[in-house]
Nucleic acid binder design. Structure first.
Lengths: 333, 333
DNA sequence: ATAATAAATGAAAGCGATTACAAAAATGAC
DNA sequence: GTCATTTTTGTAATCGCTTTCATTTATTAT
């Protein structure tokens, strides 16, 4: 692959001139521009990004760490960040952590080694201290979907408690009182926050339910199926289910189908996240909207500001979810 | 951010020694390893990937161009490539083309400028000639989901014709003869191939249908809804529908629901691709499986081989789809 | 103890670009 | 046509790292 030197030789100018043409510097004559352009085309010249980054000390890159690109939730997050990046003349480097400590570590270090100016981190497996340490090292680092008090102004997070509260309350307002909770068994803060929100809504409405109404499983449709099956096995009287997320809700839904329990006539179900599949389920899933685009956009803009040393005025970093009404919740009969 | 020089000074050794320690060269004394390791930790040293790439002339990076990361189909493709990359000690750089000519161009050039050793390209908007030109330039370039005769041994593609043929035949074997086709209106080869497959299956089974049985729309659920609505409006007698893809099938399904047409009792529907949502639809969608993981893995391995100049024996680059039996197709009654 | 060999280290060149600075060429004023 | 000014160009240093080659230090054989 040809270098700037080859182009210079071909165009009979110095490499400085070639560089000027490439970077559209004003101090380049028309004739130089032509000669260099021709030479570049002839040689199919490609400026070496590494060399450029090295000397100019900037990569124009914004890094994103996600759990798993193949999950549409993260796909949306990445796409949003990428859009903001493009608007700022930057591009995006993606790291997959696969929710594993070691892999998250490696992915984040790769992003740092590549000198990403800004970093959007969605971490499940790293400890607060590890993240704080990275944050101190990289000024353009922002956390998304996680709240660490010491990093409060660099965390974009969702009020999970409020979301679950809203979901539960929504069922209550529809006349339900026997409301089961399908929780996640992943040891992350979201799990607890959502369970607490459910509990609080119950309590605030004077509803007392035994612990049997809470069942948990892996936060996917299989986990939802398992948990729902357990609930049915326990012969619990219930007319509503608050699921940890849409995938678990999907599992609940299929178990309900299989058992001839009509949704929403006999059972109302509410999910959480409003991921792609929610609107494809039958009945279309009423759920709590996780405003990931809005949050990712905010995160990207914030990260860019922090990276450029721009002063930031403290603003709302904590997002509030909202209910998406669809067809899986009905009035209790 | 500290450099190798800082580490060398801190550890009282030369930068050459630091480099040897970093790269685990055998010729580094125990004492040097200790001193350097301590210095690196103390300074939170991060090797500059750009500098390393520049001098060593390799980036250990494999680039992927996809349409849109937020689409789970591409997410799966990326994840698979990333897995292969990791197994080979490489990492993955992702480009989004958004099915737009200009953006695909920019994305692919970014990947080239970053000196990706191998390139997996999923392009919809670039012409054959453009792709051939890139392929001649980058020896580790492989096309996926596209077939260009001149690049035959570097194209990993799916037999769309066969897939649609299979789908149609599957309905025919279930007793259907009045089978509509919901086609895509995107001007890419897949569209034609799938329509041709449908037509051929009909013909081979002696079924003659008017052109009215083919309706097209955008390849998403809205397009599917529109096309299905048109079909119903035309009062066409039909008991089966072959959809261009699962998203369109989802649209067909919802229009069927709204019109009280029971699936599969009154209408059988078969999709294409077997994307994430297929198993979440109601009824669960019978579809044609697009073996994207298998194909992406093959593509990644091939690209890596080509990049390293390894000779490749010609093998099957053309994949055949298979039917995924679920619940949206029934015997004609 | 000494020579021969092996192991560890450092100095310096170079990867491909940008850019400060100086020099050369072009332009304009008179 | 001359001199001052502006525009254009080239030289050389530099970014952070790897690696060759020469040199120093440690090890082994005799």
């Amino acid at each position: 692959m040809s270098t700037i030197k080859d182009v210079a030789k071909e165009a009979c100018v110095s490499i400085a001139t070639v560089s000027r043409v490439i970077n559209k510097s004003p101090k380049a004559s028309k004739s130089a521009i032509d000669a260099v352009t021709n030479a570049m085309n002839k040689l199919a010249y490609r400026p070496n990004a590494a060399a450029k980054a090295l000397v100019s000390q900037n990569t124009n890159t914004i890094g994103v760490l996600v759990g798993d690109v193949s999950d549409p939730f993260f796909g949306t997050l990445i796409k949003t960040v990428d859009t903001v990046a493009q608007q700022n003349g930057k591009h995006t480097l993606i790291g997959n952590g696969y929710h594993d400590h070691q892999q998250e570590l490696e992915a984040i270090e790769l992003l740092i080694n590549n000198r990403c100016e800004a970093l959007i981190i969605h971490s499940k497996a790293l400890s607060d201290d590890e993240l704080i340490s990275y944050a101190n090292e990289i000024k353009g680092l922002v956390l998304i979907n996680r709240h660490i008090e010491k990093l409060a102004d660099r965390c974009i997070s969702l009020d999970n408690y409020k979301g679950a509260y809203l979901a539960t309350e929504y069922l209550i307002r529809h006349g339900h009182t026997k409301i089961a909770c399908i929780a996640s068994n992943h040891p992350i803060e979201d799990t607890d926050e959502r369970r607490l929100g459910y509990l609080a809504a119950l309590q605030d409405n004077g509803i007392k339910l035994s612990k049997d109404y809470i069942e948990s499983g892996t936060p996917d449709s299989e986990g939802g199926e398992m948990a729902m099956t357990n609930l049915l096995t326990k012969s619990i009287e219930m007319t509503g289910v608050v699921a940890y997320n849409d995938h678990m809700a999907a599992g609940v839904l299929s178990v309900a189908h299989e058992n001839g329990i009509q949704v929403p006539e006999k059972l109302s179900i509410i999910g959480f996240d409003d991921v792609l599949i929610a609107r494809y389920l039958y009945p279309r899933l009423t759920t709590v909207r996780y405003p990931i685009e809005m949050m990712a956009e905010k995160a990207a803009i914030l990260a860019l500001k922090l990276a450029s040393g721009e002063s930031i005025e403290p603003e709302a970093m904590h997002f509030t979810p909202t209910i998406v009404r669809r067809d899986s919740v009905g009035k209790r009969n």
